[in-house]
Design a protein around this nucleic acid. Structure first.
Lengths: 228, 228
DNA sequence: GGCTGGGTGTATCAATCACATAAACAAAAT
DNA sequence: ATTTTGTTTATGTGATTGATACACCCAGCC
């Protein structure tokens, strides 16, 4: 799932190193990119928990990256910029940034804002360990599923899919979200895999897979679990 | 239940009024306090959705209020302060503030940060963009529509049409607008598509499709939704 | 009145699309 | 060795949409 690294995208080597050492000194694991392209790669490969993004990068506008990330992730984005212009701040927030820090900034403020952002995602994903939906019991710690008290065996991919769905019962997860979360961003178009594996999941969980009670499909959009 | 008001605690009358009118102009409901004591009262009485807090108040340190609020609430707190000192910022964040804005600040930045904070709590509670029009409930995140609490199934095109209309209830959307938004610019002249799909939409939403209550026709112009 | 015509609603049917499922097999993981 | 996964091909089904045709209402007008 989501790693607990912080990805820093910053082309100024000095600042980059400074940020990394400060973050490391405070117990965070860091990843580092110097271009947008490199950042995208690390994002999908490592699924960091937070993104610190300098706007001014050699191979494009950082704002483009914000929108790109927001296509399939809710990861907090903290924007750094040399510019003070209010409009730029507003634009970034509209694109989906979570915070904006203008240079020069103090490390301690940065660290405090990082901490707040991470605390928030921790709060959000304060998931229960065991979910109950109908006759289903899903234990996310032991990765086990019970149907009518009977254990059901799921393959890793099947469990990942069910796990995503069960974190927010009733919420529709788009094909895009599911594919990027389970397979990776480069599989966004392979809805076929989704169909096949959802089918296999249904075969295990539903008495009548043709008329599913738990895993509902939203045609043209994605899938969701029945709300309790 | 949490109300959808924003509580502004600020003793400077001029700034206070300015904040209130800016917020109201952007569609937020506001409450206003000038002291910590008053703020506490309004907090427990009204359970606002967000707190904008000036640190410098006549009857005590604002930071004390942050800790107080955090005893029993996760409501986002946006701190305003005349001071730029980094240590103060860090302290506020440690106390539980969500954001910190040093004066002088631009209104637009403030509004953007307010929006981000509220979007975040909306994300947490899963109930995102939900519109209510008469007996209709339209959830634009989960792409679901309720009529009298009963779920109504819409096709993608139907939902797109309804979605456009519901963003500005009462506003007339021209054939042209609707066609380009849903089908694409090259379909501007195919008004009959609109007629057909609006008809199907009515069949699903209206008890008496012949005398529509929600989807109204503006002959020669376009369609609109009844204003609430 | 009866005729006309633009803008509109709606019924019907066929083409297309999205989805579910199956099967088969190689590759990869355990 | 066995399970799991990736990949392809095929098929059936039901929902969605597009296309056509027809009915309607309300003007204005002879």
């Amino acid at each position: 799932m989501s790693n607990n690294h912080i990805l820093v995208i910053e082309d100024d080597l000095q600042i980059s190193q400074f940020l990394q050492s400060s973050l490391k000194a405070n117990g965070y694991h860091t990843l580092c990119a110097h271009t947008i392209a490199e950042g995208k790669r690390l994002l999908s490969a490592n699924k960091p928990a937070l993104l610190i993004l300098d706007l001014n990068l050699p191979d494009g506008d950082g704002r483009e990256l914000i929108s790109y990330v927001r296509l399939n992730s809710d990861i907090p984005i903290l924007v750094l910029s040399a510019r003070q212009a209010e409009q730029e701040k507003v634009d970034c927030f509209n694109d989906g940034a979570d915070d904006y820090l203008a240079k020069p900034f103090g490390v301690n403020e940065l660290l405090a804002r990082v901490k707040v952002a991470l605390k928030r995602t921790a709060m959000m994903s304060l998931r229960d360990d065991v979910y109950h939906v109908g006759e289903l019991t899903i234990d996310t710690i032991n990765s086990t599923v019970l149907l009518n008290e009977q254990p059901v065996h799921l393959t890793p991919i099947e469990f990942k899919l069910l796990f995503i769905l069960v974190t927010k019962p009733g919420k529709v997860f788009t094909h895009r979200q599911l594919l990027t979360d389970v397979w990776g961003a480069e599989y966004v178009d392979d809805t076929h895999y989704l169909r096949i594996h959802m089918g296999r999941l249904r075969a295990r969980l539903e008495k009548t897979p043709a008329t599913p009670r738990y895993i509902l499909t939203e045609a043209g959009i994605g899938y969701r679990l029945t709300a309790t």
